[in-house]
Design a protein around this nucleic acid. Structure first.
Length: 914
RNA sequence: GGGCGAUUGGCUCAGUCGGUUAGAGCGCGCGGUUCACAUCCGCGAGGUCACUGGUUCGAAUCCAGUAUCGCCCACCA
């Protein structure tokens, strides 16, 4: 038992238990004030370009789900990377008041208490809401802390705070003054359940099977002015209840069946109103009967038709979508009850000409699933045409880049076909629209919190004015987020320094709701596109690809996951499986794999820390290994770290975060742990080596581990911080990894990489041969190798490690293959690993258990494989077209390959024959 | 009706703007109590890269078309 390494216990516990330290680490970060770009503990270069990330503020309606966890992780990853690069990095936390979503949640809560919005009244309801969000707010912020999000908590914003309110008022006033906000009566999407209008985006087209009824309308006898019992025109409708709002029947002008009827009048049933038969090209002659009833106040097509023809537009539905104001017995009935009754009554009158099932698309409320009712309302709209044009210009010119790029098409399509945005909501929870009306109908828009002093048009005193009772669409305030959070419209220092921002990150599902609106409003109000890059992620789905939802019951609670496997594992898992813009399935296996990786890293660090040579003091300052004392193993470790660093840098630049984790997973596990540590173990334990060499080996491991921990820190901040704390540091290092510097890309040593790779293949080849021949695993067998001269020094340097890893003892080296064969004879197992050849002697006890037949099968398989490849290579080289057209380097590569394969085939053959 | 994306071993996914033998995790089979780690180690099996055609010396990768699945957008009663 040599005592070349220290035996003192280090302070890392034997087992990786994330729950034991993650909370404490977060507290240390907070105490050191390292999250804020201008915090006391920041190591940012004040001269460097700030890096500002915009995150979608989560709805303050409950707890975070896995999607939020993924958002926060990806964003936090980017901000930590920027921070380590020394850039002032701003990650501003926030919450969205989510007016309609919040009311939807609260309504259900108070319903359980036997109350309703109406029974409480506006003031008490809002009070209840404030209590509710005060509670959920703390839960959500706690979840973000638990996840390790390095938010600048001192800059926490909320879309209902005063800073946001001021921005909302200022924004609306400017839009109004520029004629980009206007108030008009128009057909809006009304949700009877939510009792508010919603934007086009919140209407979900749902395919359904409905009924198409054919109804006879009686023509008016010109002479008597009374309906003619015999002369009728049959219209087709899916909504018989809207008959009560009909003001015309339309046919196609070129339709011979009806040409004569155009200009005649029909009697609308039940309301007993006379309406004209009009001609309009919107009518599809092939559909239904070719005649369509026109209900301008409750159908988008009909509204347009009604406007073209100057038709009356009677409203027949109230806020609850019950029939109202028709003067018929149907008043007060729900729309569907009215439909049933009207169909029955039409039948009774003999005017129902037919009915058949009909595939149709129905608009439903995204929030409540109620069928949306188009209704005429006087409301506020944002004129999106000019705003959308500017937003398109921003992406086309490249001032704002969308990643991944294919979303640009979606972006283009939506912004090119955009319609004006209805921003009025008949809800209570949200920003009140700052518009006041005087009795004469004049409109005054004010950004003053107290409202205007007087009517802007007729100067009536404020006491005569009434404020619009409506509030804004919640996305109006979210649309101002990138700049309202920095103090806009005031020219605050934060706004000057951090706007426009660097990266906006979100899932693709709110690209229209939020991203497009931020860009439109940002350009219009600040004159600048709000962010340089739009980084879009996919959605998290359950293991079988379904969207996670509470009703399906397949939601994963991030807190539960983190308690069990740690925040780091969760973070790694959600990043590891995510290709930009693509959905990913989340499963326990992925989480477990991530946890295992953290555990691997934990143990590797524990090993390195514990393997400190006794000649190095426990508190020795970090030393740079002397290059003269480095062996091929050490140089290989350094070179591979450089390779991984380069890959990580490239992946980060491309927002390919899954590639970051893949590169680190492979680099740390398959390279550093599997080979770097295994090779180093031998040297560290070798008492015959000069202490300086053992020390150089150890410092190399420390250096590499330090580098890997830095690279991994953005993804797994807790475990890396904890482990980094156990490593020796340089005097120039800060106290914590979170503010340490991102590693530079070291130099590759491709020669050493090639040599070590060849020797690794040798070890693998020997292991393979032993395993296939069923050699007793623990047995040591004599092995002879013949290898190219160039590999000699590396082989000798690593000989003890190769011996141990291949369980080869004694391990003899021969200068030629002939010498190898001569010494080893024809018995035993042959290994042909590239240019290296080895023979394993299987005599004695171990030889008895060796399976000669299995070994022969292995060699035959290897031969067949090599022959296949050789044939392919030769075929290519024989191809005149290939040799004349392919690049020289490629041809050279195939030639080399061909020679190697030929050599291998020959050796395998002689081995099998011999 | 438009548009987008996906299709790679049993499962989940990579594959860096065409170039030698298509990778990983999980799962599977065989074997391991060596002093970092059984949350581990070693070895192995398993893929006509959805299909058809084209471009090219060369295609998982580029082009066209087809099929299946998913998503987004869309005012035809």
């Amino acid at each position: 038992m040599t005592d070349t390494t220290n035996t003192t216990t280090n302070d890392l516990p034997k087992a990786y238990r994330p729950a034991d330290f993650e909370g404490a680490i977060y507290e240390r970060w907070l105490a050191a004030d390292v999250f804020a770009p201008d915090g006391a503990g920041s190591t940012a270069d004040p001269e460097a370009q700030p890096f500002v990330i915009i995150q979608p503020p989560p709805n303050i309606t409950g707890s975070l789900h896995l999607g939020h966890a993924q958002r926060a992780t990806v964003e936090d990853l980017m901000i930590r990377h920027a921070r380590m690069l020394g850039r002032p990095a701003l990650f501003l936390p926030g919450l969205d008041h989510a007016s309609i979503a919040a009311q939807f949640v609260l309504d259900r809560i108070i319903a359980a208490e036997g109350e309703t919005r109406q029974s409480l009244g506006r003031e008490r309801y809002l009070e209840r809401m404030r209590e509710f969000v005060a509670a959920t707010r703390e839960v959500m912020l706690g979840q973000e802390r638990r996840l390790g999000a390095s938010f600048d908590w001192g800059r926490l914003r909320y879309t209902m705070d005063e800073v946001s309110a001021r921005a909302v008022r200022a924004a609306f006033r400017r839009l109004y003054e520029r004629d980009l906000a206007y108030r008009t009566e128009a057909l809006v999407n009304w949700c009877p359940g939510c009792r508010t209008s919603v934007s086009d985006l919140e209407v979900v087209s749902t395919p359904e099977t409905g009924t198409l009824w054919s109804v006879r309308y009686h023509l008016i006898d010109e002479a008597t002015g009374q309906p003619d019992p015999a002369a009728t025109i049959t219209v087709a409708t899916t909504r018989p209840e809207t008959i009560l709002g009909d003001t015309a029947v339309a046919v196609h002008p070129d339709d011979d069946r009806y040409r004569a009827l155009v200009g005649r009048r029909v009697r609308i049933p039940f309301v007993e109103r006379d309406a004209p038969v009009i001609a309009d090209t919107v009518v599809d002659r092939a559909f239904g009967t070719g005649a369509v009833k026109i209900t301008p106040a409750h159908d988008h097509d009909d509204y347009e038709t009604g406007r073209r023809h100057g038709l009356p537009m009677p409203t027949i539905l109230d806020d609850a979508a019950a029939i109202a104001g028709t003067g018929t017995p149907y008043d007060g009935l729900d729309r569907y009850e009215a439909r049933r009754r009207i169909v029955a009554d039409l039948e009774a009158r003999g005017d129902l000409a037919g009915e058949r099932p009909h595939e149709m698309v129905i608009g439903r409320c995204q929030r409540s699933d109620d069928v949306i009712e188009p209704r005429l309302k006087t409301q506020w709209f944002i004129r999106t045409g000019p705003l959308a044009a500017a937003a398109l210009e921003a992406t086309r010119s490249g001032r704002t880049r969308i990643v991944p790029g294919h979303f640009e098409k979606t972006w283009e399509h939506w912004l090119t076909n955009i319609r004006d945005w209805n921003v009025s909501r008949q809800l209570w929870w949200g920003h009140r629209i700052p518009a006041w009306y005087c009795p004469d109908g004049h409109v005054t828009v004010s950004s003053d919190e107290a409202g205007p002093d007087a009517c802007a048009v007729c100067s009536r005193p404020a006491s005569d004015l009434t404020q619009d009772p409506d509030i804004f669409d919640t996305w109006f305030s979210s649309g101002l987020w990138p700049f309202s959070t920095l103090g806009w419209p005031e020219s605050t220092p934060d706004y000057a320094r951090y706007y426009p921002t660097t990266v906006m990150e979100t899932a693709y599902d709110i690209i229209f709701f939020w991203v497009a609106r931020m860009v439109m409003l940002g350009i219009e109000l600040t004159g600048e596109t709000p962010f340089a890059t739009i980084a879009l992620s996919g959605l998290i789905r359950d293991p079988i690809g379904r969207k996670m939802s509470k009703t399906t019951g397949n939601v994963v609670d991030p807190l539960g996951v983190m308690d069990e496997t740690g925040a780091d594992a969760l973070r790694f898992a959600v990043v590891h499986g995510a290709t930009p813009g693509n959905d990913q399935r989340f499963s326990d296996q992925k989480l477990e794999n991530a946890r295992n990786f953290a555990n691997k890293l934990w143990n590797a660090t524990r090993f390195v820390v514990g393997a400190r040579p006794v000649t190095i003091a426990a508190d020795a300052p970090r030393a740079t290994p002397d290059p003269a004392h480095l062996g091929p193993g050490e140089r290989w470790v350094r070179s591979r770290l450089a390779a991984t660093t380069g890959e990580v840098d490239r992946a980060l630049a491309e927002f390919a975060f899954a590639e970051v984790t893949r590169a680190l997973y492979d680099g740390i596990w398959s390279e550093f742990c599997d080979w770097g540590l295994e090779l180093a173990k031998i040297r560290l334990a070798d008492a015959t080596l000069p202490a300086a060499e053992r020390e150089a080996t150890w410092w190399t491991l420390v250096e590499a581990l330090d580098g890997y921990l830095r690279l991994l820190h953005p993804v797994m901040p807790f475990v890396t911080e904890e482990l980094w704390g156990a490593l020796p540091h340089r005097a120039t290092d800060p106290a914590m990894l979170i503010v340490a510097r991102w590693p530079g890309v070291g130099e590759r040593d491709l020669v050493v990489e090639g040599q070590v790779q060849a020797l690794v293949e040798l070890v693998r080849g020997i292991r393979n041969a032993r395993s296939e021949a069923h050699v007793e695993p623990a047995s040591w067998l004599p092995v002879g190798v013949a290898l190219p001269v160039a590999l000699g020094p590396a082989f000798e340097a690593l000989r003890p490690a190769i011996e141990r890893l291949a369980r080869a003892r004694p391990l003899e080296r021969y200068l030629t293959r002939e010498a190898l064969h001569g010494a080893m004879g024809s018995g035993g197992l042959a290994v042909i690993a590239g240019e290296i050849e080895a023979m394993i002697a299987v005599g004695g006890a171990a030889g008895d258990s060796a399976d000669a037949r299995a070994d022969r099968i292995r060699l035959e398989r290897e031969l067949a494989e090599a022959e296949g490849f050789l044939e392919a290579a030769r075929a290519r080289l024989a191809n005149e077209a290939f040799t004349s057209k392919a690049p020289a380097a490629v041809i050279e590569g195939v030639r080399t390959r061909e020679a190697e394969l030929a050599d291998q085939v020959e050796r395998l053959r002689s081995r099998l024959e011999g």
